Structures are given as C-alpha cells and as structure tokens.
Amino acid sequence: MKKQRDPGLITIVLYHSFVASILTVTSIALLFALKNHQVLEKFAASYLLKSQVKIVEFLLDPVLSITPQTLLFSGLATGLYAILTVSRYLS
C-alpha cells in the first residue's frame, strides 16, 4: 500500500522549488548583465534611444549603476543560494 503524502508538505516543496527557479533565473540575468555591462553602457548612450530616455532610465540605469564586482558577487551568491535551496529537498 502506497503512503499518501501530506498536501502541506507538497505545497512547501513546490514553493521552495519555485523560489529556487526564480533565484536561478535571477542569477543568470545578473551574470549576463555582468558579461554585457560595457555593451549595455554603449546601448544606453546610443543615439537611437535618445527619444526614449524614460524607458532607458527605468530599465538600464539601475543595472548600469551597479559595479561589475557587485554584479558578479550578487550573481554568484544568488546561484549558490538557489543550489542550497534545491539540495535541501533532494537529500
């Protein structure tokens, strides 16, 4: 006879899996921004975006104001935390 799992436990595991996947995506995005930091700076300063300054300020300025060292640390720390979150439930 198969033992039925508690729905609360399933909910907790699903929640933590969701959080780990969001953290993984965030880590990848931060490391991608680090890799392309200079390209993003040139893109933000390009003539094509002068008419859409508000959009650039809203989307790119927060990323460009972060130093590359901070992006690297944040990306690696977020990825490590995602791995620790997942590994807690795999064992």
Score class of each variant (00 low, 15 high):
S51L: 00
L71R: 00
L49E: 07
V13H: 04
L71Q: 00
T24E: 06
Q4T: 09
V63E: 04
T85Q: 13
I83S: 00
L49I: 14
L48F: 15
S46L: 13
L34E: 06
K35Q: 08
K2A: 13
G75P: 10
G8N: 12
D6Q: 08
S17G: 15
Y47S: 10
V25R: 00
R5P: 05
S27M: 12
I83K: 03
A45L: 14
D61Q: 14
A77N: 03
V56N: 01
Q4G: 02
V25A: 15
K3A: 12
Q38R: 01
T67G: 14
L34R: 11
N36D: 09
K50G: 03
H37T: 05
T78V: 09
K35Y: 11
L76C: 12
F32T: 14
F43N: 05
L64Q: 07
V13I: 15
V25W: 06
S65W: 08
Q38V: 13
V19Q: 02
Y47C: 00
P62M: 01
L60I: 02
T11W: 12
L90V: 11
P68R: 07
P7N: 03
M1K: 04
L76D: 02
S21I: 13
D6T: 12
S91K: 02
S21T: 15
V86K: 04
L40T: 07
L30S: 08
D6N: 15
K2M: 09
P7E: 10
L9K: 02
Y15F: 15
K3H: 11
S91M: 09
I66P: 00
V19S: 02
L49M: 14
L76G: 01
V53M: 04
V13M: 06
F32W: 13
L34H: 10
F43Q: 05
T24K: 00
L76R: 03
S27Y: 07
L76K: 03
A77V: 07
Y81A: 14
L9C: 06
K50D: 13
V63A: 08
S65K: 10
V39L: 06
P68A: 04
V19D: 01
V86W: 11
F73R: 05
I83W: 09
V13W: 11
L59S: 07
L59R: 03
L80Y: 08
P62N: 01
P62R: 06
Y81G: 01
A29T: 13
L84E: 01
I22V: 15
I55H: 06
L30K: 04
V13E: 15
A45Q: 15
L9I: 14
R88L: 11
V56T: 13
K42V: 10
I28G: 08
Q69I: 15
L14W: 09
H37Q: 08
R88A: 09
A29S: 14
L60A: 02
A82G: 05
A33H: 04
K54S: 10
T26K: 00
L76A: 11
P68S: 05
Q38K: 02
A45V: 02
K2W: 08
F58I: 05
S27Q: 03
A44S: 15
K54E: 14
R5C: 05
S65F: 14
F58E: 05
T85V: 06
F73L: 08
L64I: 09
V63M: 04
L80V: 15
V63K: 00
L30R: 02
Y15R: 01
L34W: 14
A45P: 04
L40Q: 06
T78M: 01
L9A: 12
V53P: 03
I22C: 12
T85S: 13
A29R: 04
L49H: 07
